[in-house]
Amino acid sequence: MCNHPWHNRIRTIYCILPPHMLKEIAKNGTPQQRVQAIDTLSTDHTFRQLRSVHSALLAAKPSVSVSPVPAVPSAHRSIYTAKNTETLPGTLVRAEGAPKSNDVCVDEAYDGLGATFEFYLEIFHRNSIDDAGMALTGTVHYGDQYDNAFWNSQQMVFGDGDGTLFNRFTISLDVIGHELTHGVTEHTAGLAYSGQPGALNESVSDVFGSLIKQYTLKQTADKADWLIGEGLLAKGVKGVALRSMKEPGTAYDDPVLGKDPQPADMRHYVQTTQDNHGVHINSGIPNRAFCLAALDIGGYAWEKAGRIWYETLNDSHIKPNTNFKAFAKLTVSNANRLYGASSAEAKAVSKAWNTVGVL
């Protein structure tokens, strides 16, 4: 397993809504939507700056002792409300084992954190995000109609959405799984959040976010929608989700949100300095590769395709600067090791990367 010391990792704020989408809203939306998008972009930028300073302070401190891992892994969830402020974590409203509240956001967050914990434990025998029983914390009702959700290396944070473009951000289980998987990547591969490594970071979160949803619904690969953020777009928005893993570039085409810019293969790779050099855009390429491999292998995608990707995430050969080609070769190597070089699984993985032009 490729474990990097916590104080040496580069940490960031991982938001589900990419900057390019918010910038389209700021350009095309109503006056209120434009103000809201600019406020969200400003809040996200401020958080990144604060987190950078906090990370530097942490790096200067000596490492602290770690509490022993409980003998029997179990979820430890705490859901808070920010009461539409930007104070974290806020007021505790539901702790582990407490009954349902009368707040749908609280209960969706609680259930989503639980589903993610259960998936990693049951499928990969991973004890929470850090594989050491990390408590899972979520804050709902963050900000005033805040159009985003994010993982800040410590907890999940959910906005309520503005109601005209986006619904509440607790509504999509795959979004919750996506954001928490950024934490898993931090504790395993440590993929740098820029360029191709950053796009792989985003793709890994999409992959496992989708698998968590599929596992919860007990869907085979051919029955899954392969969408990220299905249900998040408000009524009247021309689109079905934030991203499509099966058909990158087709998730939305809306006068306010713009058109989904994700490429489906390397021939259409987007060279840009925005969005950390396109981490949310070019992730469509490895996303499609995983989807193609999973569909080709068949059955439950988490059982074989998911196993191959998880083993790759934990491969000792993966580095923070790993690019698409190096990652693809590692997935083929792990498929060979797990199932045999001439196996249908290994051939499916190799074929998928060839189809998207990476290998």
Rank of each mutant, 00 (worst) to 15 (best):
R9D: 09
Q219L: 06
K235A: 14
L295H: 00
N148S: 07
K304M: 10
A335M: 06
N127T: 12
D260N: 11
D44G: 00
H268K: 15
K246S: 06
G190P: 01
K347E: 12
N152G: 08
D147Q: 15
D260L: 13
D103P: 00
D131S: 15
D206R: 12
K61S: 11
V72C: 02
D107S: 08
F166E: 08
Q32L: 11
Q271P: 00
P320E: 03
S283Q: 13
N323C: 08
N28C: 04
D275V: 02
L338V: 12
L136Q: 15
K238E: 12
Q219E: 10
G133A: 03
A60T: 05
T91C: 00
N152D: 15
T273M: 08
R243D: 13
Q49D: 09
I228S: 04
I228L: 14
P68F: 04
G29R: 12
S194M: 12
L295K: 09
S128N: 02
L113H: 01
D222E: 14
E186A: 14
T272F: 02
T43K: 08
I308V: 15
A98W: 05
L173T: 14
G90A: 07
S210A: 14
L217V: 09
K213H: 06
S52L: 02
A335R: 03
Y252W: 05
R77S: 09
T188N: 06
N167A: 09
T331Y: 10
P73F: 02
R34L: 04
I318N: 04
D174W: 10
N282F: 08
S350H: 06
G236Y: 05
R9V: 14
K213M: 05
L217H: 11
T137D: 10
D160A: 09
I16H: 07
R77K: 10
G258W: 03
L200F: 01
E24G: 00
A26D: 01
S55L: 01
V270C: 11
A241G: 13
F47E: 07
T46D: 07
A293G: 12
L191Q: 11
D265L: 05
L173S: 12
G198D: 12
H4N: 07
G143S: 13
L17Y: 04
I25Q: 04
Q145I: 06
A344T: 13
N152W: 10
N8W: 13
H187V: 04
T220E: 13
P73D: 02
A132Q: 14
T312K: 03
F158M: 04
A224F: 01
A344R: 13
Q196T: 04
T273Q: 11
L180R: 06
S283W: 00
D253I: 01
F166I: 06
A189G: 15
E303V: 05
S65W: 07
Q32C: 03
G278H: 02
H4T: 12
Q274R: 11
H7Y: 12
